[in-house]
């Protein structure tokens, strides 16, 4: 299949969606990134990434049910598509290949 380019931020967003399983929506993804990676991202930046990923067909989304909080507005839940999972896996594999090829890797930086 055709190789899909994946930005670093997009990759992390996809991983966060997988971590959150069936509770991945805007605020929870932002929180996940903050808690695990201590990374602040604005809702605007996240929106751009999610839109791009959807355009590429790597994630899909659907609206959830109404809730009492958040002004009664519905959430949009995101899930990673099969194509997305394949792309993620391919990205990880290609990195592993490179990692393994490094001779005498030491964590000590020069």
């Amino acid at each position: 299949m055709q190789e899909t380019y994946l930005g670093e931020f997009q990759e992390i967003v996809m991983l966060a969606i997988l971590v959150l399983d069936d509770n991945a929506y805007g605020v929870s993804i932002q929180k996940e990134l903050k808690q695990r990676l201590n990374r602040d991202c604005s809702r605007g930046a996240l929106h751009t990434a999610l839109t791009r990923l959807q355009e590429k067909g790597l994630i899909s989304s659907e609206m959830g049910g109404a809730s009492a909080v958040r002004g009664g507005r519905r959430k949009r839940y995101y899930t990673v598509t099969n194509k997305g999972k394949v792309t993620l896996k391919a990205a990880k594999d290609s990195r592993d290949v490179m990692w393994k090829a490094i001779p005498n890797f030491s964590l000590k930086t020069v």
Partner: peptide, 16 residues
């Protein structure tokens, strides 16, 4: 298309 999702997310974050 985005309004309900985004406004909701912002409001949820605001409440928290």
């Amino acid at each position: 298309d985005f309004y309900e999702e985004l406004a909701g997310d912002l409001e949820e974050a605001f409440e928290e």
